[in-house]
Design a binder for these strands. Sequence first.
DNA 1: ATAATTTAATTAATCGATTTAGCAAAATTT
DNA 2: AAATTTTGCTAAATCGATTAATTAAATTAT
Lengths: 329, 329
Amino acid sequence: MGRVSIKDIAGKTGVSTATVSLVLNGKDKCGRISEALSEKIRETAKSMNYKPNGFAKALRSGRSETIGLVVADISNPFFAHLAFHIQEHADGYGYSVIITNTNESTEKMEKRVAILKCRQVDGFIVVPTENGNRCIEELHENNIPVVLLDRYFPEMPSHYVGVSNFHASLEATEYLLTLGCRKIALFTYKTTLRHAQERRDGYVAALASRNLYDSRLIKEVNHSTITEDINRSVQELISGQNEIDGIFFTTNTISSIGLKKLREMQVHVPNDIKVICFDKSESFAFSNIPFVQQPIAEMGRQAVDIIVEQIRDRNQSPVHVELKTELIV
Amino acid sequence: MGRVSIKDIAGKTGVSTATVSLVLNGKDKCGRISEALSEKIRETAKSMNYKPNGFAKALRSGRSETIGLVVADISNPFFAHLAFHIQEHADGYGYSVIITNTNESTEKMEKRVAILKCRQVDGFIVVPTENGNRCIEELHENNIPVVLLDRYFPEMPSHYVGVSNFHASLEATEYLLTLGCRKIALFTYKTTLRHAQERRDGYVAALASRNLYDSRLIKEVNHSTITEDINRSVQELISGQNEIDGIFFTTNTISSIGLKKLREMQVHVPNDIKVICFDKSESFAFSNIPFVQQPIAEMGRQAVDIIVEQIRDRNQSPVHVELKTELIV
DNA sequence: ATAATTTAATTAATCGATTTAGCAAAATTT
DNA sequence: AAATTTTGCTAAATCGATTAATTAAATTAT
């Protein structure tokens, strides 16, 4: 009734478990098992519907063939797609992926990473939270392979896959400028995470070079009060005397909320105001809003490639992959 | 350098591994270990930063404290949210969740389930594909706990959590009728999956009772050619002589594509045509389109509760949970 | 015919934790 | 004082698979 083990096969075939293991792992040639016996064992294994016990294997080998994926929010389409591609690609290497959420909470991230450590994942792909560096450092200290994804900590050497945020942001802002915008607001998270700062810097660079930079047009929102923050800031900007003519939303979540608020206020995009966003969002299926497209599939693929490489051979010097984005107008 | 094992603690404390295990599992009382020794062991364990090896535990106990979640597409927000809630709730029970995709392919579903079986997940939560019944039956035969989610196979008794599709659909269609619609089209998948049929049946029932049923207004789309199918059918319906005044899109994916096509054709919702959808979608953040809201968090919670219950005590008679939806207008 | 080599399979240790049965020593009862 | 019970701890088997070391048999070489 219970699972079929290698012992059952050995019993039925009248050989030792070692022989069965050798054959079933294709090591019968160097273990020199006769072809006839090999065939017989393979057949009984199949007929008994033998499935190797992953834990026994993992316990023995110390490798779980599992990658831990730690993301900020699996219900965010950007991360969901990323997770999808990571899983698909990991599959090709024979790796399973355990996905886990942090909700942008460092505390939760630490807890989840600890759990995955107990489960002996072979490596981590992590979209770190703000202040998550300590947690990542610990993984480094334990010599556990990690790849950071989407975000990174500049002061800490680490494998990383992301996009050229500064350039993407510069390009996006310049696009609004070419449309004739002169007073462009920026919506971004209030965070020390470098990727967010890069996006801000790109925006600043584009405006500053034309003497259009105005710090009052930068709106920082908190993750925990995101909707209220955005609604308030949009309200302020639109009804204030600032007369803005463009907005750059730097993430898909911010875009969704911001666009909804604009609509509620009867501000029409792009007639009344031009908008550009980082990441696509379903919320502008209708308005053909231009956006910065990240190569999600490629990001996932590279992250998996790097982590698998790491697992096979640790202690390689940190790889820093910065992929190009595309401006979709 | 390597992991700290129970043996290391035993060595350092000068006791046997049995004692350490007993203490660390809180069985020191019935194993009758002296309080002083217990304390000493707990301290060294902490100071050595001991983390139990999950595989050894799982191998010994036969339980992995892991639930396999098999969904059709993690990048679909409906499933992503479901996955999110399942994970959150499973966490409370100390279970990890391995999420895996099937892309609506039965073949892939079988492969993924097989992989998870090897990893000895304690139970499965599955959003099955069409023709996935054979795969589920096999799990039943192996006496592995399963809960079907969102979809089920009526001929096969099984634990299941879903919504009252027929009633939701009836209600949605009737809502369009109260808005004055008389020629309402239905967009649904061409599938034998019962939940889809229930949605169709609800629509049919609402119209048939008013003698408004017209089979030509039912548009079935294939999963693999969904965009073309929807675009073609929308085109046909709008430009044809059928003069439809309402559309019911029965899933969020179908809604997104259909609404986009309508917009491209310059058909305005709800002025030119009324629309109602199953599930919310970002794509109608702007148009306030009415929709059938499923209790996603509750679905996830119930699925976890049932599977955990099952793992603890198999062979309970199948629980069939049908949750209520809410019409959001 | 004997020694050396090759082939074919097995034994037993191991991974890390759990758990049952059982041994001594101490405490209690008779 | 002897018998019994309780207390405190350990030895060893076990989960399922892998693998180095070893043995036994068959083959080839001398």
